[in-house]
Design a binder for these strands. Structure first.
Length: 105
DNA sequence: CGAGTGACCGCAA
DNA sequence: ATTGCGGCCACTC
């Protein structure tokens, strides 16, 4: 349940990311849309870097299902984090969005 | 307060 | 199908 409207965009993004279930992934654009700004996808990325490091940012990928470039440790770390959650990552650092993309209820 | 930046997305050639 | 470019908003310094 995502009902956190504390004015701050950053807060909403962090809230949504923290609600992503294990074994599921989400795209920056999707999160931006859920926050109310379909064009704030870049902001999500910015918040990901300066936001709460306690949140599962590794479950956040781009629309193509590709892993983020600025992830701490590189894509390699990102890929490993996803695999640790049971998510299958291809050698091209891509995940099956068709099945792993989490859809908020 | 102002300017720069960004882990993106969508469309056009 | 692949590559290149622009845009948009919020956050940080």
């Amino acid at each position: 349940m995502i009902v956190l409207t504390e004015g701050n965009f950053k807060n909403r993004v962090e809230a949504i990311v923290s609600q992503i279930p294990r074994g599921r992934v989400m795209s920056y654009g999707q999160i931006a849309i859920l926050c109310g700004n379909p064009r704030a996808s870049r902001i999500v990325g910015g918040i990901a870097h300066f936001g709460n490091s306690e949140l599962p940012w590794h479950r956040v990928v781009n629309k193509s299902g590709g892993l983020a470039s600025g992830f701490p440790g590189g894509k390699q770390s990102h890929k490993r984090a996803l695999e640790d959650e049971g998510i299958v990552v291809t050698s091209g650092y891509q995940v099956d969005m068709s099945k792993l993309l989490w859809r908020p209820q």
